[in-house]
Simulated assay, not measured.
Amino acid sequence: MSDLFESFSVSASAMRAQSSRLRHVSENIANVDTPGYHRKLTPFREVLQGGRRSGAVEAAPVQLDDTDLPEVFDPSHPMAGEDGIYLGSNVDLVVEIADAREAQRSYEANLKMFDQARQMTRSLLEILRK
């Protein structure tokens, strides 16, 4: 029975991690045209309980993408230098949309796993009542 409860914890932790990832992806999309904006990355790390692997994950601290910012030529932009160039954002909209879909699909898969464990627990309790 404890394995069923552990599966709740594992799937819930994965849903929290994917939710955090999706939040950062949406921030990246919102800042696609913000000059000087560095893309946020959400790495995951495994949660250890008592020094042993638990199967649960959590979002690690946010990292900034260190890819060079593109130089944009627009002399009319207020941030442009004397040469008419300013640093743009290193956010690629296609990559962000793909990351958002991956996070959404992972969240849905963990939600199904959570629901399956819930149904199994309910069935087990019904059997024990009889």
Rank of each mutant, 00 (worst) to 15 (best):
Q63P: 00
A56L: 02
P75M: 04
E71R: 15
V72T: 07
S76F: 02
V10I: 05
E126L: 11
N31P: 14
V25K: 00
R23F: 05
Q63E: 01
Y86E: 00
S106Y: 06
E27M: 14
P61D: 04
S26V: 13
L93Q: 03
S123M: 08
Q63V: 03
D92R: 03
L48K: 14
S2H: 08
T42Q: 04
A98V: 15
D74E: 06
V25C: 04
S26T: 14
N28I: 05
I127N: 02
F44D: 03
H24A: 15
L125D: 09
S123E: 10
P61W: 02
M113H: 11
S123K: 09
M15W: 00
R53H: 07
R129T: 14
M15H: 03
P61Y: 01
S76A: 06
S20F: 00
T42F: 01
V95Q: 04
E6F: 05
A30M: 04
S26P: 04
S9A: 06
D92F: 05
M79E: 13
D68K: 01
P75T: 02
D66F: 02
R118F: 02
R23N: 13
R129H: 12
Q104D: 07
S76L: 03
S2P: 08
F5R: 09
E96M: 13
V25R: 01
A12G: 15
A117N: 12
N110P: 04
D66C: 00
L64N: 14
S54I: 09
E27I: 10
T42L: 01
E96H: 11
K130I: 14
D74K: 00
G36A: 11
L64S: 15
Q18T: 14
R16A: 11
V91W: 06
I127V: 09
V32F: 15
A56K: 10
L69Y: 01
S20D: 00
D115E: 10
A117M: 11
D74P: 01
A14K: 05
S26I: 07
E27Q: 14
Q119H: 10
V72Y: 08
R23W: 04
